[in-house]
Each structure stands twice: as C-alpha cells, then as structure tokens.
C-alpha cells in the first residue's frame, strides 16, 4: 500500500499525465489525417478506376499486413533520407497515419459497398453527377453504418501509440516505464495506472460512439 502512495506522488502523476497528453495529441492528429486520407483511399478503391484502384489497393494491402512496429521504425529512420528531419512526435504521427489510413480505407470501402447500388442509380437518374451523388447520398449513409467499426479502429489507434515507445516517443507507456525503471517498487502501481488511464480514454470513445450510433440509427 505504501508503494502505491509513494508511486502516485504529485511528481510522478504529473509526469504520467504529460505522457497521456502526448498519447492523446498523437492520437487526435493521426485520427484526423488518417480519416481524411482513409476516406479518399476507400473511395479510390471503391470506384474502380483502371490500374489506379488496383495499385492503390495493393499498397493498402501491403501496409495493412505489416506490423505497425516495423512501420514506426521505418518511418523514423527513413524520413531523413528524403531530407526531412522530423522529431519523434511528428514522425510517430506520420507512421500512425500511414498505417491507420490503410486500415480505415478498408472499412470505408466496405461501408460504401454496403449502400445499395439502387441509391446511386436513383441519385444519378435525378440528375446528380457521380461526385454529387457520392458526396451527398452515398457517403452520409455509409458513414452512419460505419460508426462502430470506425470508432473501434480509433480505439486501436490510441492503444497502438504505446508501440511508439520503440522509437522513444514520450507517451504514456514510456513515461510509466521510466518511472518504474527508476524504482522497482512502483512496477505494480504504474501498470495499474496504465490500465486505468487507457481504459478511461478508450471506454469514453466507445461509449461516445454508442450514443452517436444510437441517435443516428
């Protein structure tokens, strides 16, 4: 018990919360970009433009089937090769965005695919252009149905930021490791704190998604 009291000193807690902040920061920015890029890629894959869609699809499959850990390493060490010296936070965001865009593209493609073909035909016969129909009729319906898988992918993303400890991103897990690395008695309290903090963030996300899902459908 004494270990818990000592481990949760103001100094340690504020260090943990600073880590949590980086986790959230990296997650939110990556979610934003990967949602944008993932939607574009998902549509590109759905509309079947000769060659283009096939190539996009293949690249998406390659990225989806690699461990994120590998992509993190690659991005961090390979970016300077094209003249970009990114510090670890933006580098992590780039790697997470690349990986999550590919994951989201699949979800979005199948979401669009689930909207009945008749919807598109009806919209077109009412004089809408293909892109108008896509943006105004198909996508809104697709997104409504996609909320649960989308949000569970976002939750994965939040959890996956912990893997960036491998390139020393100063996020929650790494900060906890530093604290228990300096005092072994703090191991259990730190893991409890990790479990609680990740759970709060992710559970909030999933409850939020359920509420939105309920309202819309």
């Amino acid at each position: 018990m004494q270990n818990f009291i000592n481990a949760y000193s103001a100094v340690n807690l504020s260090y943990l919360l600073r880590g949590l902040w980086v986790t959230i920061e990296v997650s939110v920015v990556s979610i934003f970009f990967s949602f944008l890029i993932g939607t574009l890629l998902g549509i590109a894959r759905y509309v079947k433009i000769k060659y283009f869609s096939a190539i996009v699809g293949f690249i998406i499959d390659l990225i989806r089937n690699l461990p994120l850990l590998l992509l993190l390493f690659f991005t961090y060490f390979a970016l300077p090769n094209i003249g970009l010296r990114l510090s670890v936070i933006p580098a992590s965001i780039v790697a997470m965005t690349v990986f999550e865009s590919a994951m989201l593209a699949e979800i979005i493609r199948s979401g669009i695919g689930a909207v009945p073909v008749g919807q598109m035909e009806a919209a077109r016969s009412n004089g809408m252009s293909y892109s108008q129909a896509m943006l105004q009729i198909i996508l809104p319906q697709a997104f409504k149905k996609m909320i649960p898988p989308l949000v569970s992918q976002f939750i994965s993303l939040v959890k996956d930021t912990s893997l960036a400890t491998i390139i020393l991103l100063p996020e929650l897990t790494q900060h906890a490791q530093i604290i228990y690395g300096q005092n072994v008695n703090y191991t259990i309290p730190m893991f409890v704190a990790l479990a609680v903090l990740y759970f709060i963030v992710n559970y909030a996300l999933s409850v939020g998604s359920r509420i939105i899902d309920h309202r819309l459908n």
Partner: peptide, 12 residues
C-alpha cells in the same frame, strides 16, 4: 517533387 527535393541531399 518531394523525391526530387529530397533525393538531392539526404540529411546524412
């Protein structure tokens, strides 16, 4: 463009 800009001079 990115490749051209980059390829010229990797930081290393």
């Amino acid at each position: 463009i990115l490749v051209a800009a980059g390829c010229g001079k990797p930081l290393a």
